[in-house]
Amino acid sequence: MRHTPHFVMTDVDAVKRVVSEHPWATIVSHTAAGIVASHYPVLLEERGAEDDPDAIVLVSHVGRPDEVAHELGQHEVLVVFQGPHGYVSPAWYPPEQFVPTWNHVTAHLWGTPEVLSDDENFRVLGELVDHFERAMPEPVSLDVDEDTARRIAKGTVGIRIRVTRFDARAKLSQNKAPEVVERIIAGLRGDGPYASPALADEVERAHTARVDGREAR
């Protein structure tokens, strides 16, 4: 990630929020065959979180034979989470500021995957389904037909990643004057070609935190 120290996110809870709100992640491995990248939903594992609130533990699964392609368990992997992002037009700046930019929220996390047992993998798969189904009016669970679900689960490999380090950025116009930030937020909330309400929320969060003298979460 580009070296931009003034946009660095160091707060663990802020990084966890990015993971939680944007679970579709990219898993990247440097293998003997070269660079391998795959895309899967990833959840924070909350079990035992009270023992170490600063720990970040991820759980997911890959479809076979991705576990072979990634050489899972043999080395560290990078997991990339991409939050809201979008173009920021200089139309929202004062006339003398005419260079556009791209605002974004991005988190890179590293750790060595632990390959789960079949039973743990099935539990994690169930938690993944339950997590996303809870927004549905009539949630569907793997319990509907556990035998069939377990047969299908054999085509997947569950993983747990205890994050050893992370590099996260929230580039959200923190280097702009407050009145310019307000115009950016208004532009992102508008109906123009670069409208992005989710990005507007992030810029507003960072702006409020800056005014309050704290890190955005």
Rank of each mutant, 00 (worst) to 15 (best):
G73P: 00
L72T: 04
A177I: 07
R160V: 06
P197C: 00
I184C: 01
G158R: 04
E50A: 14
A69P: 00
V181K: 05
A107K: 08
H6N: 14
R169K: 15
R64T: 07
A107H: 03
A37N: 11
E133A: 11
Q82K: 12
L128P: 04
A195N: 09
R150V: 02
E127C: 13
F7I: 14
E138G: 02
A168Q: 05
L72W: 01
I152V: 15
R162T: 05
D143L: 09
A209Q: 04
A153F: 05
V140H: 10
A55S: 15
I152L: 15
V80R: 04
A209V: 11
A55M: 14
P23K: 05
P100I: 04
S38K: 09
N103S: 07
H30T: 05
Y40I: 07
V36M: 05
E96K: 13
A107I: 03
H39W: 02
V62W: 05
I184Q: 00
H61R: 13
A107G: 05
E179M: 09
L116F: 06
L188W: 03
F98P: 08
E179P: 10
T208A: 13
M1L: 11
E50W: 07
P90S: 02
K176Q: 08
D147P: 01
R169G: 01
H30M: 10
A206I: 09
